[in-house]
């Protein structure tokens, strides 16, 4: 079963090949590695969920996969790693199917590579879109409210809006939501999800160990560790 979930940004500035003399975002790499090290301490198995690149222009592996592998290597711990790629523009249904089918042995850590909007400020990679804040707030609320059963709210993220807002993590986060859902057949994103979540008594199985949120470059980065019991 999945015992831990770690969420990290898929920013290429975390990769060694893009390191300058000083880190572009001081502390981000250390934060990711620290959280991941803590989570995989007792894991024998790590499942990486990452999106394909939105604008792939090379034969290199997807950036999210490379970020995950780099972070995992930096933990200096031994475990089996399985990579699960989800198309960056996969439908919610496809994400849910993928999430439900994730194989998890005993003591599996799910490493989800994905971030929020890259359109949070005028200097952001995608320039400012005023809708970004609300969507990002919803993502953060769902993750930080995981103990209250809010992860399923990630399934409400609209693929088209997220594509417009350059939310690179939408599909992987929806795979996560389906994978850890206590409901064997989570509903499609719709009003009834909201209604159900609102009446939920919470998810006693899930503990939010940590959840750091930053946007130093106009992109929402979430570094989070959830523990499932």
């Amino acid at each position: 079963m999945i015992t831990d979930v770690v969420i990290v940004p898929g920013a290429p500035l975390l990769l060694p090949e893009y390191q300058g003399r000083v880190a572009a975002v001081p502390g981000l790499l250390e934060s990711c590695v620290g959280v991941l090290s803590e989570a995989v301490g007792s894991s024998h198995h790590v499942v990486v969920v990452h999106a394909t690149d939105r604008e792939a222009r090379s034969t290199k592996p997807a950036i999210g996969l490379r970020v995950a592998d780099h972070l995992l290597a930096a933990t200096h711990q031994a475990f089996e790693v399985e990579h699960v790629a989800v198309a960056w523009d996969a439908s919610v249904q496809e994400c849910m199917t993928l999430g439900r089918e994730l194989k998890s042995g005993s003591g599996t850590t799910l490493l989800v590579v994905g971030d929020g909007s890259a359109r949070r400020t005028e200097k952001a990679p995608g320039h400012l879109d005023t809708r970004a804040a609300d969507v990002d707030d919803a993502i953060v609320a769902a993750i930080s409210g995981a103990a209250d059963g809010d992860l399923e709210r990630l399934l409400e993220l609209d693929p088209e809006v997220c594509a417009e807002l350059l939310v690179a993590g939408r599909a992987p986060l929806q795979v996560l939501a389906a994978a850890v859902s206590s409901d064997p057949t989570p509903a499609l994103a719709s009003a009834d999800v909201v209604a159900r979540a609102a009446t939920s008594a919470g998810d006693a199985r899930c503990e939010v160990v940590s959840c750091e949120v930053t946007d130093p470059c106009g992109v929402l980065y979430v570094v989070a560790h959830l523990r499932l019991h």
Binding site: L13, Y18, R21, V22, V25
Partner: peptide, 12 residues
């Protein structure tokens, strides 16, 4: 011979 000081352009 020297890495750039700090790179984030296109990499965030």
């Amino acid at each position: 011979d020297l890495p750039p000081a700090r790179t984030a352009r296109g990499l965030a």
